[in-house]
Design a protein around this nucleic acid. Structure first.
Lengths: 333, 333
DNA sequence: AACCACGTTCGAAGCGCTTCGATTCAATTC
DNA sequence: GAATTGAATCGAAGCGCTTCGAACGTGGTT
C-alpha cells in the first residue's frame, strides 16, 4: 500500500504538503502542486479512507435507508436510489446501504460508529416508528416523505395535496362533473401512507370546492381487481367521465381493460395519473400525468444533507410543486 | 464521543483489555469481561469504524455493484440486494452501494482506499467490460452472472442451460412434440446477456436430443408485442402445444392475451416459465416454474466473498441447480 | 525453595492521515 | 535598511483503535 509518506518522499516535500495539495485547504505553489500530483500518479496513490476519517472526523459517506422489501414500486425506489448515489458521488461522497427492514437503530449505529456523516431515509410514512429515533441521531438527517410529526426534522417530498388538487382541477376545467379517484390498495391507506392520504385530501378538497361528484376507489393490483374496480367506477348511476389514477401498478391493466370494454381514452373517458414521466409516456395510451420527480427529489435530498454537514441549519420542510404534462388523454366535455 | 479509553478507565482496565473483550481474540476472565461490558453499556460506547479500520486493516464493509438503471427486472434485482445486505449484516458487515453506471474503476477505487474489504458484482454479462478490471482488484471479488471469460474470477449463477433443458424436458415428458421458447427482447440477446444465451442453448440442446419441433421467439414487453408474438407462436402450421417463457415482464400480458383468445392453460396450451416463485404463484393462472433463487444466490455470494477474506481460496464457479415447481400449468397430451 | 507454565492483563508502538502552530524566505513598507 | 507582511512549507501532535511482546500472579512441579 502506497502511503502519503511515500508520495511526500517521492515528490521531495513533507506529508502535510501532500495533504494540502489534496484538500486544497492551504495555498500551495503551482510548481509543487504539479510535482506532488505527478508523484501521486506515478505511484498510484490512493488515500486510506479509514485514516482520513479518523484524522478528519469525516467519513465522506452518507447512509441511505431504503425499503428493500416493499414489493410495490421497486422501479421508482431505484430511481431515487440511483439519483442519490449519483449526486452523492458528484460531491465525492459514497453511499452506505441500510435497509428499512433491519429496523431503526441502523441509522444510529452507523452514525455512532462514524461510518457515515449523514443519513437519508426513504419511504417515510405518516406515523413512521423510525421518526422518534431519527431525532436522536447526532448527524444531519433528511427524510424523503412526510411523517405527521416532523418537528425538528428535515423533510422533502412532492406536494401530493397540490397534485390531487391539480388533477381534479384539470378535469373540472375540461367540464367534467363526475370524476373518480382510483387509488392504492387498501393496505396502503391503512398503513397511513402519508402521500396517499395527502393526495386524497387534495383531491377531495378540490372536488368539493368545485362542486363535483367524486368517488374514491382503493384498488388492488391484478387484472381481476382492476376489472372489478372499473365495474364500480363506471356504474351508470355515477356518470363518471374522468379518472384520476394514483396507482402505478394498475395503469397497464386498466388501459387494457378499458380497451376490452371498447371505451376510448379520451373519447369516452378522460384519464390523468401520477407516475414517472417515462412510464406515462410508454403506456399503450400515453397519459396526461403529474410526474414523480424522483431524480430531482434524490438530488435535493443529497444537497440538503450535505448543506447541513458544515453549518448548523434549521430543519426544513420542502414540498416540490407538481408538474403536469398534457399527453392528450383528457378531453373537453 | 465515548472512546475505548474512557471505557477502559470506567471499568478499571487497560484499553487493550477492552479491545480483547470486544474482539474475543484473547481470553479474558469472566469477571472483567462482565465489568467491561457493563461499562460499555453504561457509557453507550460505539467503536469508531475509521480507527478500527486503520488499526486492523479491515473495514468490515463489502462493496456491491448494482445495475441501477437497468429498467427491467428491478424487483428481482432488489431481491438480490436485499438478501445480500441481510446476510452481510449477519456477518457484521455493511454494504457500500456502487453503481454499474458509475463505471468500472469504482470497485478498484473502493478497494484501493480500503473503504471495503471485498466486492460483489451483480448483473455480469457475457462480454462484460468490467471483467478485466475486476481481475486487477486486490481483494476478493464474486460475480453474480457468468462472463464468457471468467478465468481467475469467482462466479455464481443459476445453471440456466440446465433450466432450459429441464423445461423442454418437462414438456417432452408430457408428450408435447412442438414447443416454443418465448425469450427476452432482442436487445437482451444482442447485448450477449449470458443467462439468456445459456438458457437458449440448453433448450435447443434438449429439443434436438428429444427430436421435438422447437421455435424461438424474442419478445419485447408491452401488450401489443406480446399479442404479435403469440400470433407467430400459435400459427397453425407450427402445431405448438407447449410454451417455455423466459421473460418475466411478459407473463401477465401473455396470460391475459391467451384468455382473450379463449385458450385455456393448460387445457389448450401448456406453459412453463422461469421466474421468482412468488411471481409464478401470484399470476392469474399459477404457472409451473423454475425459480430464480435470488435469496439463496445473494446469501451464497456473501458467504463466498467472506470465505475469501481470510485465506487464499482458489477462484470458483458455482452454478445452482434449478428447482422446478409444478403448479399444474402443463398438461399431458 | 526455586522453577515452570499458564491464564490474564498491561503498555506501547504503530496504522495513515489531517491540522495547527512555527518557520522560512521573498516582497513590501516606512 | 529594519520592520512588516504574507505566501509556501515543514514538523509534530494527535485521531481511536488493534496487536505484540512483556509482566504479573497463581498453582503445580521438581
Amino acid at each position: 500500500m502506497i502511503t502519503i509518506k511515500e508520495v511526500a518522499h517521492h515528490a521531495g516535500v513533507s506529508m502535510s504538503t501532500v495533504s494540502y495539495v489534496l484538500s486544497g485547504k492551504r495555498s500551495i505553489s503551482e510548481a509543487t502542486k504539479r510535482r506532488v500530483e505527478q508523484s501521486i500518479a506515478a505511484l498510484g496513490y490512493h488515500p486510506n479512507a479509514g485514516a482520513r476519517a479518523l484524522a478528519s472526523n469525516r467519513s465522506r459517506v452518507v447512509g441511505l435507508v431504503v425499503p428493500l422489501h416493499s414489493d410495490q414500486n421497486m422501479p421508482i425506489i431505484m430511481r431515487f436510489v440511483s439519483s442519490i448515489v449519483a449526486r452523492a458521488r458528484d460531491h465525492d461522497y459514497d453511499v452506505l446501504l441500510l435497509t428499512k427492514e433491519a429496523g431503526p437503530g441502523e441509522a444510529h449505529r452507523v452514525i455512532a460508529r462514524s461510518m457515515a456523516d449523514a443519513i437519508i431515509v426513504m419511504d417515510v410514512e405518516s406515523a413512521d416508528p423510525r421518526v422518534p429515533e431519527l431525532r436522536d441521531v447526532d448527524a444531519p438527517v433528511v427524510l424523503l416523505g412526510m411523517p405527521d410529526d416532523h418537528e425538528g426534522l428535515s423533510c422533502l417530498d412532492l406536494d401530493f395535496a397540490s397534485a390531487g388538487r391539480q388533477m381534479a382541477g384539470h378535469l373540472a376545467d375540461r367540464g367534467h362533473r363526475s370524476i373518480a379517484l382510483i387509488g392504492s390498495p387498501p393496505p396502503v391507506y391503512q398503513r397511513g401512507t402519508s402521500f396517499a392520504a395527502r393526495l386524497l385530501s387534495g383531491f377531495q378538497g378540490e372536488t368539493a370546492k368545485r362542486g363535483l361528484l367524486a368517488s374514491v376507489h382503493s384498488c388492488a393490483a391484478g387484472y381481476d381487481a382492476v376489472s372489478e374496480c372499473l365495474d364500480d367506477v363506471l356504474h351508470p348511476d355515477r356518470g363518471t367521465t374522468g379518472l384520476v389514477v394514483h396507482n402505478e401498478a394498475v395503469l397497464g391493466p386498466l388501459l387494457l381493460e378499458l380497451r376490452r370494454r371498447s371505451l376510448d381514452v379520451p373519447g369516452d373517458l378522460s384519464v390523468i395519473t401520477l407516475c414517472p414521466d417515462d412510464v406515462a409516456a410508454a403506456l399503450p395510451v400515453p397519459l396526461t400525468s403529474i410526474a414523480v420527480p424522483a431524480q430531482e427529489l434524490g438530488a435535493i435530498a443529497v444537497e440538503m444533507v450535505i448543506a447541513r454537514l458544515g453549518r448548523e441549519l434549521a430543519p426544513e420542510v420542502r414540498l416540490l410543486q407538481p408538474q403536469l404534462t398534457d399527453r392528450g388523454s383528457t378531453a373537453v366535455r
